[in-house]
Deep mutational scan, measured.
Amino acid sequence: NQASVVANQLIPISTHLTLVMMRSEVVTPVGIPAEDIPRLVSMQVNRAVPLGTTLMPDMVKGYA
Rank of each mutant, 00 (worst) to 15 (best):
63 Y>H: 04
24 S>D: 06
56 M>T: 12
59 M>K: 01
56 M>H: 07
22 M>K: 00
11 I>C: 03
33 P>G: 06
15 T>Y: 15
43 M>R: 09
38 P>T: 12
26 V>M: 12
3 A>K: 08
22 M>W: 03
3 A>W: 10
48 A>S: 15
33 P>M: 06
44 Q>D: 02
40 L>A: 00
33 P>K: 08
48 A>Y: 11
15 T>C: 07
9 Q>T: 14
43 M>W: 06
46 N>Q: 13
35 E>N: 12
7 A>S: 11
23 R>I: 06
19 L>S: 07
40 L>M: 06
28 T>H: 12
1 N>G: 15
62 G>K: 07
26 V>S: 10
56 M>N: 05
44 Q>W: 05
38 P>D: 13
42 S>K: 13
53 T>D: 13
14 S>T: 09
4 S>G: 04
5 V>K: 01
54 T>L: 04
27 V>F: 02
18 T>R: 09
26 V>R: 05
49 V>F: 03
31 G>A: 03
45 V>Y: 00
38 P>G: 12
7 A>T: 09
40 L>K: 00
54 T>V: 10
19 L>H: 08
6 V>L: 07
15 T>G: 06
25 E>F: 07
53 T>Y: 15
60 V>I: 11
27 V>S: 05
51 L>W: 11
59 M>G: 03
6 V>R: 03
54 T>Q: 03
31 G>Q: 00
8 N>C: 11
40 L>C: 03
20 V>Q: 12
58 D>M: 11
58 D>V: 09
18 T>C: 05
10 L>Q: 15
7 A>Y: 03
23 R>T: 06
50 P>C: 08
6 V>F: 02
39 R>F: 10
46 N>V: 14
3 A>S: 12
10 L>E: 15
56 M>R: 08
8 N>H: 06
21 M>G: 00
53 T>F: 12
61 K>P: 09
5 V>G: 02
35 E>D: 09
58 D>K: 08
18 T>I: 05
10 L>S: 15
34 A>C: 08
18 T>M: 13
39 R>N: 09
31 G>D: 02
55 L>E: 02
42 S>P: 00
54 T>P: 08
31 G>W: 03
32 I>G: 01
27 V>M: 07
60 V>H: 01
34 A>L: 03
19 L>Q: 07
2 Q>V: 10
12 P>N: 07
6 V>H: 02
62 G>S: 10
23 R>A: 06
59 M>S: 06
50 P>L: 14
29 P>A: 04
7 A>E: 01
34 A>T: 09
63 Y>W: 15
13 I>S: 13
24 S>L: 05
24 S>W: 08
32 I>Y: 02
59 M>Q: 04
48 A>R: 11
37 I>A: 09
64 A>T: 15
1 N>S: 15
34 A>R: 05
55 L>M: 11
40 L>F: 01
21 M>P: 00
51 L>S: 13
49 V>L: 08
9 Q>S: 11
28 T>S: 14
30 V>C: 13
35 E>M: 10
24 S>I: 08
53 T>V: 14
46 N>W: 08
6 V>N: 01
13 I>N: 12
51 L>H: 12
26 V>G: 05
16 H>F: 15
44 Q>Y: 11
47 R>L: 08
19 L>N: 06
36 D>Y: 11
37 I>Y: 03
23 R>P: 00
60 V>W: 03
51 L>T: 13
25 E>L: 10
1 N>W: 14
16 H>L: 13
28 T>E: 15
63 Y>V: 04
26 V>E: 15
56 M>S: 06
49 V>R: 01
62 G>E: 08
49 V>N: 02
17 L>V: 01
43 M>S: 05
21 M>I: 03
55 L>A: 01
47 R>F: 07
57 P>F: 07
31 G>C: 03
21 M>V: 03
48 A>W: 10
15 T>L: 04
55 L>Q: 01
17 L>Y: 02
5 V>C: 06
20 V>W: 14
30 V>N: 12
10 L>G: 12
7 A>H: 02
28 T>F: 11
33 P>F: 09
52 G>F: 05
54 T>R: 03
19 L>P: 07
30 V>E: 15
37 I>N: 00
15 T>P: 00
23 R>Y: 05
12 P>R: 09
58 D>Y: 14
49 V>T: 04
20 V>D: 09
64 A>R: 10
18 T>V: 06
62 G>H: 13
19 L>W: 15
52 G>Y: 04
9 Q>G: 04
25 E>R: 08
20 V>A: 15
44 Q>R: 13
61 K>F: 13
40 L>P: 00
33 P>N: 09
19 L>K: 07
1 N>M: 15
15 T>D: 03
17 L>R: 00
61 K>C: 15
36 D>Q: 14
35 E>Q: 10
21 M>E: 00
25 E>P: 01
15 T>R: 06
46 N>I: 15
40 L>D: 00
56 M>D: 05
2 Q>N: 14
30 V>L: 13
12 P>S: 07
58 D>C: 15
49 V>C: 07
45 V>N: 01
46 N>H: 09
8 N>T: 11
20 V>P: 07
57 P>S: 08
43 M>D: 04
14 S>K: 11
9 Q>H: 08
7 A>V: 06
43 M>H: 07
29 P>E: 06
64 A>W: 06
14 S>V: 04
59 M>W: 12
11 I>K: 01
40 L>H: 01
23 R>H: 05
50 P>A: 12
22 M>E: 01
4 S>V: 02
17 L>F: 01
13 I>F: 14
17 L>Q: 00
19 L>E: 06
35 E>P: 07
7 A>P: 02
57 P>E: 07
12 P>L: 06
47 R>T: 10
6 V>Q: 03
56 M>I: 08
36 D>N: 13
50 P>K: 11
42 S>E: 07
1 N>E: 15
8 N>D: 11
3 A>Q: 11
35 E>K: 08
20 V>C: 13
46 N>K: 09
13 I>C: 15
1 N>K: 08
34 A>E: 09
35 E>T: 14
49 V>S: 02
50 P>D: 09
25 E>K: 09
22 M>S: 01
9 Q>D: 07
58 D>H: 10
60 V>S: 01
7 A>F: 02
42 S>D: 13
17 L>C: 03
30 V>W: 13
1 N>C: 07
36 D>G: 05
1 N>R: 05
41 V>A: 04
40 L>N: 00
39 R>M: 10
40 L>G: 00
9 Q>V: 11
14 S>Y: 14
59 M>C: 06
56 M>Q: 13
53 T>R: 13
23 R>E: 04
9 Q>N: 05
63 Y>A: 03
37 I>R: 06
10 L>A: 14
5 V>P: 01
55 L>I: 12
53 T>I: 10
3 A>H: 09
53 T>L: 12
36 D>I: 06
60 V>P: 01
42 S>T: 12
2 Q>T: 13
62 G>R: 06
13 I>W: 12
1 N>A: 15
28 T>L: 08
59 M>P: 01
32 I>V: 07
39 R>V: 08
2 Q>G: 15
60 V>M: 04
48 A>G: 09
37 I>H: 01
60 V>G: 01
64 A>K: 12
1 N>H: 12
15 T>W: 09
2 Q>E: 15
21 M>L: 05
19 L>R: 13
45 V>G: 02
41 V>D: 03
54 T>S: 04
53 T>M: 11
25 E>V: 10
54 T>H: 02
17 L>E: 01
4 S>E: 01
34 A>V: 10
5 V>M: 02
37 I>S: 03
39 R>H: 08
58 D>I: 09
61 K>H: 14
32 I>N: 01
28 T>R: 05
15 T>F: 09
2 Q>R: 06
61 K>R: 15
10 L>T: 11
43 M>I: 04
60 V>Q: 00
20 V>N: 10
39 R>G: 08
48 A>P: 09
10 L>R: 11
61 K>N: 12
47 R>E: 08
30 V>M: 14
20 V>M: 15
49 V>E: 02
10 L>F: 13
49 V>W: 04
17 L>N: 00
16 H>V: 11
63 Y>S: 03
54 T>D: 02
21 M>H: 09
40 L>W: 03
18 T>G: 04
57 P>C: 10
50 P>I: 05
62 G>P: 05
64 A>I: 12
14 S>W: 15
61 K>D: 12
3 A>M: 10
18 T>Q: 11
8 N>F: 04
5 V>D: 02
49 V>P: 02
41 V>M: 08
5 V>Y: 02
54 T>C: 05
36 D>T: 07
6 V>A: 02
45 V>P: 01
30 V>F: 11
42 S>H: 11
5 V>H: 01
59 M>D: 13
28 T>V: 11
22 M>C: 03
17 L>W: 02
30 V>H: 11
56 M>C: 13
33 P>Y: 06
33 P>E: 04
32 I>C: 05
4 S>I: 01
44 Q>T: 15
6 V>E: 01
12 P>Y: 05
32 I>A: 02
24 S>Q: 08
50 P>G: 12
3 A>I: 07
29 P>C: 07
18 T>A: 09
3 A>D: 08
24 S>N: 07
18 T>H: 04
37 I>Q: 05
61 K>A: 14
